[in-house]
């Protein structure tokens, strides 16, 4: 009995290591198997959103700092890439620039706002985000509210955009996994639970929050960059909108906050819903998100990934080394209010 359990958990661990790479391989060879142009576009935009979702999840899910201001990074990424390409730089240079500018911005946003906690931090990020949008609407060098156009030399190559997005989202998954399994990730989990107790064992909550904010911002900035390059045209009311911030926050919450694969799942669901349903029912998609969000908060705070885990509950207990603790945790998580 014990031997079998050991074998099956080992097998599962191996699968957990192999499966993501298999998925990546499929995504990389899929276009060669003859994918429709629409499907390529759908997968592209899903990968862009998923990258944002993974980024937000590091700050919001892992470190417990709920930000409503990630449109700032998305928009700054878009504009940085646009401006750098306009200056004759390569798109890749543009994306790196996007990451750098977004990370820099995250630092300046974090310095004052991370002095605040919980809902006060969340509200402050709304203010910062709206302020940035208003400034960008009135900034002359970027064309203000009328938007910015990226003019790229050479023919339009949808697959290049696609592969860029896939490589970036794969990179985001790797970065997220590394962070979550590091001592830095452990410190962030502690900060989420009790900032003061974390400080009492030498974890500086402020600097650790600044760091994770920078990583999350950089990922979102790159996503904004690749989105902008493909879109060719964007404006502050789009990339810097509050709707963008909400979308980025919704994805990990829907998928399962605090885990890499929850964020990925949320991004994929959001990408598909956004692209397919918006086209068919343009007025209905917000209602759908609202409904979904209420259902998730009420019924399954751990998102769809949590729901899936609960369906395979007995297996999960076998997986984790902690005997019986899970039962109580699962019981507890239903009673204890979650941050979202």
């Amino acid at each position: 009995m014990a031997g079998r359990m050991k074998f099956s958990s080992l097998w599962k661990r191996r699968m957990a290591l192999i499966l993501p790479w298999l998925l990546l391989l499929v995504l990389l060879v899929l276009p060669a198997a003859g994918l429709s142009a629409n499907m390529v576009r759908l997968l592209f935009i899903t990968a862009v959103w998923t990258t944002c979702s993974i980024g937000w999840n590091l700050l919001g899910g892992l470190a417990g700092q709920i930000s409503f201001g990630f449109a700032v990074f998305f928009g700054l990424g878009a504009y940085t890439t646009g401006l750098l390409m306009h200056a004759g730089r390569s798109p890749w240079f543009g994306f790196i620039g996007a990451a750098a500018i977004a990370a820099l911005a995250s630092f300046f946003i974090g310095l004052p706002t991370f002095r605040l906690r919980g809902p006060y931090f969340a509200i402050a990020t709304i203010g910062v985000s709206e302020a940035v949008r208003v400034v960008m609407n009135n900034l002359d060098i970027t064309g203000g509210a009328s938007g910015y156009r990226i003019i790229e030399n050479g023919p339009y190559r949808p697959l290049e955009h696609y592969y860029t997005a896939i490589v970036v989202v794969a990179g985001a998954v790797v970065i997220s996994s590394v962070v979550m399994n590091s001592k830095f990730g452990l410190a962030l989990r502690a900060i989420k639970q009790d900032e003061d107790a974390a400080a009492d064992i030498g974890v500086n909550p402020f600097t650790n929050k600044l760091w994770v904010h920078a990583i999350a911002g950089a990922l979102t900035g790159i996503a904004g960059g690749i989105y902008a390059r493909r879109a060719g045209f964007f404006y502050p009311g789009d990339v810097f909108s509050f709707q963008t911030s909400i979308s980025i926050l919704l994805m990990p919450v829907i998928g399962g906050i605090g885990t890499v694969w929850g964020a990925v799942l949320g991004g994929v669901i959001f990408g598909i819903v956004e692209e397919q349903l918006v086209a068919k029912f343009p007025d209905l998609h917000l209602l759908l998100y609202g409904g979904l969000l209420i259902l998730i908060i009420l019924l399954e705070p751990d998102g769809i990934l949590g729901l899936l885990r609960r369906l395979f509950r007995s297996k999960r207990i076998e997986d984790s080394g902690s005997t019986g603790a899970d039962e109580i945790l699962w019981g507890r998580s239903r009673l204890e209010g979650r941050e979202l």
Partner: peptide, 27 residues
């Protein structure tokens, strides 16, 4: 270092993780 009168463990971390973190970030 200090302890609190009202205990403040990181409830969702394991016992080992709680203490391991203190080794990482301690003196």
């Amino acid at each position: 270092a200090r302890t609190h009168q009202i205990v403040r463990p990181f409830r969702q971390l394991t016992v080992l993780e709680n203490v391991q973190l203190a080794v990482h970030y301690g003196r």
